[in-house]
Design a protein around this nucleic acid. Structure first.
Length: 458
RNA sequence: UCCCCAGUAGCUCAGUCGGCAGAGCAAUUGGCUGUUAACCAAUGGGUCCGCGGUUCAAAUCCGUGCUGGGGAGCCA
């Protein structure tokens, strides 16, 4: 007899008859003559209720089953006379696959996220985390589906890189040297595996640009590493980033694309993860429905940086940090704009060039660059992107202006020498997207095994 | 890295002015009418985060370290 997934039974309208299921016991209620077992196999948030009568050969074993134990059940699907479920299974055979001893840490009650983080290897067995990771999987699929339908190519940019190209934050060193090769606290990179300083990637962008300038529209979707000593609910050292890069694309089209992307993947999980989303709207964030509605049904606000400064200056709210043209926006400013002022996702664009990296395209005013950030309620910056500087002379000027080693960028510069075209792209933090769409407030709770400063337990 | 808060049973927490270590849930055992975080009863369960100090006496006061959380910076 072939095993069926519990989701298949719960989703069906007509009785599937005799079935075989396998899963874990979430809870058990005993009566004198029989037991109710709630079985979950991870295929859905919902459990299926199994009735085990005391006439089973091994009923003695069944009564010893505990929360967390694994079982295999054969039985007839029947309409449930009880409330709370349509179908249940009358067990005709119930095999114990394994018993979880009484030390099993997950109980039939709410646990705090902090406690569950200390048992990250077991937390996907809870309702909330099961839902988080089903949605994470479905969102990843939606990303690929979206890009596939739009004719984008998926590019695997390197994870080990030989350049500190963007100077973006602290990098994780990659080395095969041991202590004996390190003299006076200095690495002799010539003796190292690659013969030069090597790091984990902080962004696939520069590589992706090379492929956009050949395959047209491309995207990357992979792990990214930042060794910043950041201790916040929005930062981890290893996270996943989605980076589209589009040839013949200006800043406005870039924003159009970002908006279309966000609406598409949001709609996808609304269509495919209704139960899981429902759990979050009920138990995690009551305002989640409004957030999702604002993504699906609003036209995202597009606001030039200088107008954002004006709005903040006029705001009837005291900010801890100064608002002044030429200064970067602080968290409190971003949240005011997206949460209080507009209450929908907001693109801020055309930032002063002094606060943005070398590769962003200089605007005609020579003061601003064609950069854009997408701010969303509760998260702040979800997307950071720009139109790239495609003009060779301007790019070289910028590199020199920012005192960057031009020779290290020889291959990047080559792309502006040969067949250069306007192009644009952005980076989107995958975990922040999951936070946005689930209402989960700590990034450590939307990635299976989070890596943060002094914490790599699993 | 900076600022603030917390650490007591497996979990969530209470513990007054420094004076015998507590509750609910969980677990274990038994009971029970088709239950829904089932219900009822009994039982077991402690390095009060570590180290040092003050005191006749410290979970409680002081110092220090560690861990966790919230916020900031950095960013996605």
């Amino acid at each position: 007899m072939n095993r069926v997934k519990i989701k298949q039974i719960l989703d069906t309208d007509k009785n599937p008859g005799k079935v075989l299921i396998k899963g874990w016991i979430r809870t058990k209620r005993d009566s004198k003559e029989f037991s109710f077992l709630e079985i979950n196999d991870g295929s859905s948030l919902k459990n299926i209720q199994v009735i085990a009568q005391n006439n089973l050969d091994n009923y003695e074993d069944v009564t010893k089953l505990t929360t967390g134990s694994a079982v295999s059940v054969k039985g007839e699907v029947v309409e449930s006379p009880g409330k709370g479920q349509k179908w249940e299974i009358n067990a005709s055979e119930l095999d114990v696959v394994s018993i979880a001893p009484e030390t099993y840490p997950l109980q039939k009650k709410r646990h705090t996220d902090e406690f569950l983080r200390t048992i990250a290897h077991l937390r996907p067995r809870t309702n909330k985390y099961g839902s988080v990771f089903r949605i994470r999987s479905e969102l990843a699929y939606a990303v690929h589906k979206f890009y596939n339908e739009k004719g984008f190519r998926y590019v695997h940019t390197p994870i080990i890189t030989g350049s500190d190209c963007e100077g973006a934050g602290e990098l994780f060193k990659v080395t095969t040297l041991d202590g004996n090769d390190v003299e006076k606290g200095k690495f002799n990179y010539e003796k190292d595996f690659f013969g030069k300083e090597t790091n984990l990637t902080v962004s696939g962008q520069l590589s992706a640009e090379m492929f956009a300038l050949s395959l047209g529209d491309v995207y990357t979707f992979g792990p990214t590493f930042r060794a910043e000593n950041s201790n916040t609910s929005r930062h981890v050292a290893e996270f996943w980033m989605i980076e589209p890069e589009m040839a013949f694309c200006d800043l406005e089209e870039n924003m159009n694309h970002a908006e279309e992307f966000l609406k598409y993947v949001t709609q996808h999980i609304c269509d495919n993860c209704a139960d899981d989303i429902n759990l979050f709207t009920q138990f995690v964030d009551k305002s989640l429905k409004g957030v999702i509605d604002s993504i699906l049904n609003s036209k995202f606000k597009r606001l030039p940086y200088d107008e954002a400064i004006e709005i903040l200056k006029k705001a009837d709210q005291k900010f801890e940090y100064e608002v002044e043209y030429g200064l970067d926006l602080q968290s409190e400013h971003e949240r005011y704009i997206t949460e209080k002022h507009f209450k929908i996702p907001v693109f801020i664009y055309n930032y002063p060039k002094t606060i943005k990296p070398f590769y962003m395209r200089i605007n005609d005013d020579n003061k601003t660059v064609a950069a854009m950030d997408l701010l969303v309620p509760r998260i702040g910056e979800l997307i950071g992107g720009s139109q790239r500087e495609e003009r060779l002379d301007r790019l070289l000027d910028r590199l020199k202006e920012m005192d960057l080693p031009v020779e290290d960028y020889w291959w990047y510069i080559d792309s502006r020498k040969y067949g250069t075209v306007p192009h644009s792209g952005f980076g989107l933090g995958f975990e922040r997207l999951i936070m946005l769409l689930t209402g989960v407030t700590n990034i450590r709770d939307v990635i299976p095994f989070p890596r943060t400063p002094s914490s790599i337990d699993f």
